[in-house]
Nucleic acid binder design. Structure first.
Lengths: 207, 207
DNA sequence: TTTAAACGATACAGATCTGTATCGCTTGAA
DNA sequence: TTCAAGCGATACAGATCTGTATCGTTTAAA
């Protein structure tokens, strides 16, 4: 039992430190609201009350801290998704609407400042930062879930519908940062429904 | 004829300097491709061949340079829009499709790196930078144009359709920076068409 | 020829950034 | 009691950032 992970009640136990958690909480809040490049390590140190040495012990570089932030954000996002999905077992059509609804609602929330993954990808276009891989994984996973639901409702072209819903949602994330919460974002839910309807109507033999 | 603006053949004439133009060109390219925060004034000086003093004579602060970049970007954008629109006078339905098409095509271009306005708004969330006003004006103007076209095709709910098209396009701008040009963006044109169709079909007396 | 403005070159100020080095204190397990 | 690890405090290194100060040179109009 010399394993570092199985040692501590109050003594930290790798990655379970209270100080580490506080640092990550403060950093996440600041990164999300003000942007990653805009927030210096010193600010995180000051607002968390931790020592700079401690921050760098748990997160060897700022990139590691950013990665931890994004990783948790993604985990929380899908945890919420799963919670909603659980209420609509085997009813993909209703589940889709429910997801659109909570996403639209999420955007009107007070602390909302866009999508952490889109934001970081735009802040770091080329840079080989580890965060980009996490953002990519998040969006890929989201699309996979939409695709499964699109197939579940027997959409004419499930891939196309999944893509369209992705655009609609990311558009809401992005546009809201310029035109605000009372702008085009209010069309998210209805727009999504329109796309779903168009993709499931039996084609009226046009042409 | 002592007016500063009416003086020069080669001698600069306020805002018509060749060096100024070169600085703005270099800065625009770098801001767009690498991000605004990521590009320092020194880099622009080095790549433009101009002197730092000259840059600061024409653009008293970096914010002024950013504003000039965005201003021109917006002007160019609508100039292109107008050029396309001119080919479809009084045919709003075809004009809408044409806009969707060149936007989708624009995104697949080699130098493409998203929407300059969304990018800057995400890079500077709170900051009272002059650029945000320009971004806001650009998106507002775009929505106004979509609204006019939506009315032109007698959409059931023109405002809703305009909003939905905004989301679709900004979604393509944003998502492409994470999932790339072969991701959901390929659904932009068809998705837009689906929204337009849904907004113009006579309602099949549902409910 | 005088004058004013555009331009280049360079050095620098002052702030801020990430990351490290060096202390000493505390706590809990061996 | 010994010892290792978590933590705080502080100072600092080295880079980078925006913006300024101070030169001298060119150019073209008056």
């Amino acid at each position: 039992m010399t394993d570092a992970a199985s040692r501590a009640p109050t003594g930290p136990a790798r990655a379970g430190s209270a100080v580490r958690a506080k640092i990550l909480d403060v950093a996440s809040e600041l990164f999300y609201r003000e942007g990653i490049r805009a927030v210096g390590v010193d600010t995180i140190v000051a607002k968390s009350g931790a020592a700079k040495t401690t921050l760098y012990r748990w997160f060897p570089t700022k990139d590691d801290l950013v990665a931890a932030f994004l990783e948790r954000e993604s985990k929380d996002f899908f945890a919420h998704w799963d919670k909603v999905a659980a209420s609509y077992a085997k009813r993909p059509r209703e589940e889709l609407s429910a997801h659109l609804k909570w996403l639209a609602n999420y955007i009107t929330g007070p602390r909302y400042r866009g999508c952490p993954f889109l934001n970081m990808a735009i802040e770091f276009p080329m840079a080989d930062v580890p965060g980009r891989a996490i953002a990519h994984a998040n969006k890929t996973e989201l699309r996979t879930r939409f695709l499964a639901l699109a197939k579940g409702i027997k959409a004419n072209a499930p891939d196309a519908l999944a893509d369209q819903l992705m655009l609609m949602i990311d558009g809401a994330f992005a546009n809201s940062q310029v035109l605000g919460k009372k702008g085009p974002v209010r069309a998210l839910a209805d727009g999504g429904e329109a796309l779903i309807a168009a993709a499931t109507h039996s084609r009226p033999s046009r042409s």
